[in-house]
Structures are given as structure tokens and as C-alpha cells.
Amino acid sequence: MSIFDERFVQVIEQPLSWEQALQASGDLLKNYGKIEQEYIDTMIANVHELGPYIVIAPRVAMPHARPEHGVHEKGISVVTLKEPTQFSEDPAHTVSLIVCLAAVDSDSHLELLQTVSGWLADEDVLNDLIGAASTDELQHRLAEFYF
């Protein structure tokens, strides 16, 4: 079964701080019992401690923490922000696409990373995902083309 699940996809209209944006991306997984709030708190604390290293490509952040911080089941959520959020004052840390990753060990999510890596390597794909006007549209584009 594909890991893609349209319940874990959301387009957010209102401007959010990066903390709120990470919370929103984690909430999608939390609401279905995949992770605990502790996991989201840890992701946010990691960025406070280590800096915005989760910005893995221009416009894209992939928040994650270690499995032992409250992951029940592996999962991925995809959130796009109509109003980009800033992870720092550096414009390089402006983010519109958040891929929240919950892994249960260090290798069962490799396929998932490969999929996301494919998006990052292709500017057209990123534009297509970030340009989705509504949650429906983003779900459709992800299901149809990118998973």
C-alpha cells in the first residue's frame, strides 16, 4: 500500500509563524494517532536548538525528529502555505512547502525520501505543488502524479 494518504494534505491560507506551520503539519499526523504532541514539540525544539537545518531546498522544509519521541506509525504530511513562512531573517529560509516526516526506524522511510527528493530536483514539480489553489487540488496533484 502506498504511504500517500490524502487525509495528511492541507493548503493553509492564513499567515503562520514557522512554529505554527510545523504544528499544523504535525497536527495532520497527530489527529489520526500516528504521532504524539511530544513529536511536534521535539521538532520545534530541534530547530530552536540547531537552527533551520530542516530547510532542505529553496522553499521546502522537512521537519522530523527521532522515532523515540512519540511516533506510533510511519507517516508523511504535506502542507503548503499560501503565505510563505520565515525560518530566519535570511531569505534562503523562506518556506512554502512543509513535508512532515515521521519515521519508525532509520531505513523504512527510504522510499519516501526518494519520492520527496524527486520533487525537490524538479522546479516544475515544486511550482505545481506550491501553486495548488486548495487542499482538494493539492490532494489531487499528489495522488495523481507524485506518489
Binding site: N46, Y53, R66, L101, L113, S117
Partner: peptide, 12 residues
């Protein structure tokens, strides 16, 4: 940061 997210993508 964690050794199993972006570093694995970089390795790929």
C-alpha cells in the same frame, strides 16, 4: 541534524 532525513537524501 538527525542523521536519517536530509543527510540520507544528500547521500542518495
Amino acid at each position: 541534524g538527525m542523521g536519517f532525513g536530509s543527510s540520507l537524501m544528500l547521500k542518495m
